[in-house]
Design a protein around this nucleic acid. Structure first.
Lengths: 136, 136
DNA sequence: ACGTATTTGTACGTATGTATC
DNA sequence: AGATACATACGTACAAATACG
């Protein structure tokens, strides 16, 4: 299970375990994770370590957490936004203000799309950029 | 300074203070932040709260932290990568493995560039995508 | 509708390890 | 070698939102 002597931090070990469960579908999108005390007792680690592990997965955009527990993030429908010639695209984490305005959970980056001196911020969890020839 | 009665968590208040210092240039890129004990005593909060505040800024991509302290992230030279027609671009946070492989710090998202069934992962802190007409 | 239990959130403290200066 | 500074990990307590009977 979890080996506190392995050199790998226990919170990271738990994050790895749950991440694998998500990746292999053992924990399906929308499904609830176990509660913090459950992980705590099952793996014999402190609640602080459990919370750190869960925070990692949240930052990776794999789960969302509410007062009633954590769930595997469901895949959002991606709006395919066409971008045209001379467009410059970068990506970064949103400020907290941007996060609220865009309505994106933790662990979701944003696109910064610049064209003609005009700048647009797009939520990374529901936007795919498609290069369309001849478009602007 | 920091008001523990304000309703806003103290770790968030500290994160807000330091973020503002970074945004207004009071803390310049490359410059060291104060040490954890310094924040602890200056604001009269626990070290755990200081560490949470610093973790927030790291996740936002604003600072990097090493054993010798935290520094404001310097802006990396952006390689402008041309992308051509029918390319699909998404963004997300990297897995930890990807982070190590790409050599990007915490708080830096990646581009996923798909073209002709080929998929490429690009570091978000040193890549800008430019749509170039006629390119593939 | 109400109280209770559950579950996460915040905040503190302590101790020890390890890399850096 | 010693001091500094961050990293890990444990514990406690209480608050607040949610779910349940």
């Amino acid at each position: 299970m979890i080996d506190s002597e392995s050199g790998v931090p226990v919170y990271r070990q738990l994050a790895d375990i749950v991440r694998r469960q998500i990746e292999c579908g053992e924990l399906a999108p929308g499904q609830r994770l176990r509660t913090e005390p459950e992980y705590e007792f099952e793996y014999g680690i402190s609640r602080a370590s459990v919370r750190r592990a869960i925070a990692i997965l949240r930052q990776e955009g794999l789960i969302t957490t509410s007062r009633s527990g954590s769930r595997v993030r469901t895949v959002r429908a991606m709006a395919e936004v066409p971008i045209g010639d001379e467009t410059r695209v970068t990506t970064r984490m949103p400020t907290e203000m941007e996060r609220r305005q865009l309505g994106v959970p933790e662990g979701v980056p944003v696109f910064v799309v610049e064209q003609d001196g005009d700048q647009q911020i797009l939520a990374g969890d529901r936007t795919a950029l498609i290069v369309k020839a001849g478009r602007d």
